[in-house]
Nucleic acid binder design. Structure first.
Length: 548
RNA sequence: GGCGUGUUCGUCUAGUGGUCAGGACGCUGGACUCUCAAUCCGGAAACACGGGUUCGAUCCCCGUACGCGCUACCA
């Protein structure tokens, strides 16, 4: 063990003692059962959907227990940091309405960026060094690589432990000599783990878990020749979660294997242990098997994907909460968003993200919205992603409202479900706006179903010439019915089926001509309603374009 | 390799020592219908495998297989 004087000389002379930080960040005095939780995103790119997933669990637990939800940016790997990532995170969380109680400049337990907590970490590193729970390691990258290679060659567990921990028991003289040479070093934790020893701990989701005790002398403070001098995740977790008075750590299940290390660290530092809850990761189907959603390979792994496409935040939240607790998926949306998440009910296997199911949920959700609400939401989305649409919506709000009245609204028993996300609006309802509608004039257009051009021309011309803007739906459609008969279409699909060669098509195909002419689509809301909304002039303009 | 963790219809899952193993999405047949969507009625579809324990196991125990994770001065 190094002399205290030697240890202290490695640190700034004005570095505070642990008691200083303990007083600065006192216990919170919260009510019994209140959970203080935190999310620790790394600013290495866009927010992963898993971050949103765990963040919504954190937010929920903190809210329902009367605790606090902290976002602490874990930027200890400065090399991997991506500029602007933190802003992206904030934007993404804001979109989904998951706001922390403490983050950045808000909260008494900050700073909330690990890179700004150097002094705090150094205090505790010095403390571990003073008490012999940690030591200086001057091993080079080459030496470490060599150790790993030899361990692998002899099928030994890899790591810095036992006889492989070459600096663990060096004499004070050797350390001093290396120091005098100015060699860079890291600080390693002196693990108390014994060979064969096992530890167990309770996970709030999985119950009692057993694991080999940690024997690795993990690095707790990175290289001495870097500034700022930052800790590894393990050490930062112990120090930050203690000082921020976090009492429940909710994180991905990839951390389960590290818990024995974390427990040793908490003990060595004299901190009370925290409760853990390890969440199964969101998965992705890959051929016959499944794997973790990857930001690089899967666009839907990034929260950006959902924001850009304009998925309704509530629907995504609802879907995610249903994955967390299946019980919530059975509840109506509003109730499910209110009903508390229960950690004990969390699944232990990683669920597959099912975009098709999400679509279904979104369609159901949007169907409950009023036309006004939809226009507002679409406009908000389009402000960032479809500027032309914003202009159209604001200049022709009345048209948009009329369009969204067709087979929609509170008085309609079974509203249309053709809107899943805000970006669907243009394709589903864009045709209502003359400025967004390209006329259909090519009779060979595949949307017209391959009918003979002369027939198309004759039928549509006839329709336009005799068109009456009738109020009654049946009467209005009578026009198509009569013309269909006149031009030789079968009166109904069954008749056509019986005698396929006798007709060019059934009334379906005939109606479809008008539909495509008016909407440019093979699928649209009720034709009569569309025509009434468009107005006679516009109907004639569109039909005549096809008549040629 | 070692350690950990997981495995019920295609997917999300409910569930129990004796159940016709339930629901939802998707798929599919039909009804309705001018189309699409919606809606309604129906259908196919699962306890990973092998041993135990037991009168009986999807459920309890042990293996095996497979998936995932950790085994970094990444988190």
């Amino acid at each position: 063990m190094l002399d205290r004087a030697v240890v202290d000389a490695l640190f700034p002379s004005d570095l505070p003692e642990p008691s200083f930080w303990e007083e600065q960040y006192p216990p919170r005095g919260l009510a019994e059962g209140a959970k203080v939780v935190r999310l620790g995103p790394s600013p290495t790119g866009f927010l992963h959907i898993g971050g949103l997933y765990v963040g919504s669990i954190d937010r929920d637990i903190a809210t329902h227990s009367g605790g606090s939800y902290i976002v602490r940016v874990e930027d200890t790997d400065q090399a991997r940091e991506v500029p602007g990532a933190v802003e992206q995170f904030n934007k993404a969380f804001a979109y989904f309405g998951i706001q922390p109680d403490e983050a950045d400049s808000v909260g008494a337990y900050g700073p909330y960026h690990q890179s700004q907590r150097e002094q705090i970490y150094l205090t505790y590193v010095r403390e571990l060094l003073r008490t012999g729970h940690a030591y200086l390691c001057f091993a080079t990258k080459e030496e470490l690589a060599d150790i790993t290679a030899r361990q692998q060659a002899t099928k030994l567990p890899t790591g810095y432990y036992g006889r492989w921990a070459i600096w663990r028991d060096k004499t004070a003289e050797d350390v001093q000599a290396a120091l005098d040479e100015g060699r860079p070093y890291v600080v390693r934790f002196r693990s108390p783990g014994k060979p064969g020893e096992r530890t167990s701990f309770v996970d709030a989701i999985r119950g009692t878990l057993e694991h080999e005790a940690n024997r690795n002398d993990v690095v707790i403070l990175k290289a001495s020749d870097q500034s700022p001098r930052l800790p590894t995740y393990h050490f930062a977790h112990a120090v930050d979660d203690h000082l921020m008075r976090v009492n429940l750590v909710i994180r991905g299940e990839e951390w389960i294997s590290s818990v024995p290390t974390h427990l040793q660290l908490f003990d060595a530092l004299g901190f009370d242990r925290v409760e853990y809850a390890h969440i199964a990761p969101l998965m992705k189907q890959q051929g016959g098997s499944r794997r973790k959603l990857s930001k690089r390979k899967d666009p839907e792994a990034s929260v950006e994907y959902f924001i850009e496409a304009g998925f309704p935040a509530e629907a995504v939240q609802y879907y995610l909460r249903g994955l967390v607790n299946a019980r919530l998926a059975e509840l109506p949306l509003a109730e499910a968003l209110e009903s508390p998440i229960n950690l004990a009910e969390c699944g232990v296997a990683g669920p597959l993200v099912d975009l098709v199911k999400l679509d279904d949920i979104c369609a159901d959700y949007v169907a409950t919205l009023s036309g006004e609400e939809i226009i507002d939401r679409v406009s908000t989305w389009a402000a960032s992603y479809d500027p032309e649409l914003v202009t159209v919506l604001s200049e022709e709000r009345d048209v948009a409202l009329a369009a969204l009245k067709v087979e929609r609204g509170p008085e309609v028993a079974n509203p249309r479900k053709d809107l899943r996300k805000w970006s669907d609006f243009r394709t589903a309802y864009g045709f209502f706006f003359p400025s967004l509608f390209p006329l259909v004039s090519d009779k060979a257009d595949e949307r017209l179903g391959g009918l003979p051009p002369e027939l198309i021309a004759a039928f549509t011309a006839d329709f336009a010439d005799g068109y009456a803007d009738l109020e009654d739906g049946q009467e209005w459609f009578g026009q198509i019915r009569e013309l269909a008969a006149k031009h030789g279409f079968a009166p109904n699909p069954k008749e056509l089926k019986k005698n396929p060669d006798a007709y060019p098509g059934s009334i379906r195909e005939a109606a479809q001509l008008i539909r495509v002419a008016l909407t440019g689509s093979k699928a649209s809301p009720d034709l009569h309603a569309v025509a009434r909304t468009l107005g006679t002039d516009e109907v004639l303009r569109r039909v005549r374009a096809l008549a040629g």
